[in-house]
Amino acid sequence: MNDGLAEKARTLFAEKFGAQPEAIAFAPGRVNLIGEHVDYNDGLVLPMPIDAGTAVAWARSDDGRIHVHAADLGEGDSFEPDAPTKPGEVSWRSYVRGMAAQWDGELPALSLLITGDLPRGSGLSSSASLCIALARAFAAATGTEIDPTSLARQAQRTEHEFAGVACGIMDQMAIAAGKPEHAMLLDCRDLSYEHFAIPSDWAVLIVDSGVTRGLVDGEYNARRQQCEAAARALGVDSLRDVRMEKLVAAALPQLEARRATHVVGEIARVREAAKALQTGDLARFGTLLQEGHASLRDLFEVSHPVVDELVERLQGKVGASGGARMTGAGFGGSVVVVLPESRAAEIDGAGDGKVLRVT
């Protein structure tokens, strides 16, 4: 957490609650370098945390309730710690109450103030960042130690049960267990992971497309259901267990075949990308990003015309020395660009949208 965000959280807490917070909890956002829509298929992913994120300033209180103020929205909420009910409509309150409901143990009365510098709807996992920051605040307030995997599972259950999004666990694990300036090769089946440093001569940038990402009309959940249908037709528990040869020979219905082809191919691309990262082969890494974007656009159908145009424009600037692709669940959001450090300024000054430097 940068000093500016910490000071902002302290100041806003004092203005709202008339006292200083006891402490401030923080959780970053994340960018996924490659491995999209495969976490809920037990696949492999390669995300990394970013500097921007969510801060939760907190202090214990004595009125028997949890009071929450979302400073960036100018909205509040209040509920009893031992009886957090699910809101009627999904909003930021769903995540706060969901994490309180998932907490294993008794929560005290608290005053909480939420603020951050992570754009919502940009595909950088603002919801998982909020969940993990809240859990870290609860842990600090109760003197509880909680391992990253358990924390991530609580955040995932909140998404499922309180926000109605049947997400995988990549975002939560990348945020809870990620290491700055390192990519995490995460096996979403057993949650084992390794950290790999981003080479010093590589730059990772995020360019905002300007299209606010939304899980449009349940399309995210629909993709998961389509993948599950493909796995059932193939006689496996998940698409992680399918090889491309078996998939091609199976003659699935067209829709399920497209979805499964993306998943099986993307898992293979993640394996190759991890090798390219370890050997410093940026050209190969960039090619894999391009292939991943084409698959998300054409087979999984989760991109957006504005995002596609931005990827094409950025790829034209990077050329064969790196790669660009959509990142996140899709339907808008951001583009990740990996390129030589020596050429990063070409993107920084390109005027293609707000640029966030990761490394």
Rank of each mutant, 00 (worst) to 15 (best):
G29I: 04
R30A: 13
V38G: 11
V45A: 09
I50N: 11
A55H: 10
W58P: 08
E75I: 08
E80M: 15
D82S: 15
G88D: 15
G88F: 02
S91I: 13
W92S: 13
S94H: 05
S111P: 15
I114K: 03
P119H: 03
R120W: 05
S125P: 03
S127Y: 04
A135L: 05
A139K: 03
T144L: 12
S150R: 10
Q154D: 14
V165F: 05
A166F: 01
G168V: 07
A177Q: 07
A177C: 08
G178A: 08
K179Q: 10
M184N: 04
M184S: 11
R189N: 15
Y193S: 14
P199Q: 07
D208W: 04
G214C: 05
E219W: 02
Q226M: 08
G235F: 04
P253E: 05
H262Q: 08
T279A: 13
G286V: 01
G286F: 01
L289T: 01
H293M: 13
F300C: 15
H304Q: 12
V307N: 13
V311A: 06
A320I: 03
A320L: 03
S321R: 06
M326Y: 04
S334D: 08
V337D: 10
E341D: 12
D348K: 03
A350M: 07
D352E: 13
V358C: 07
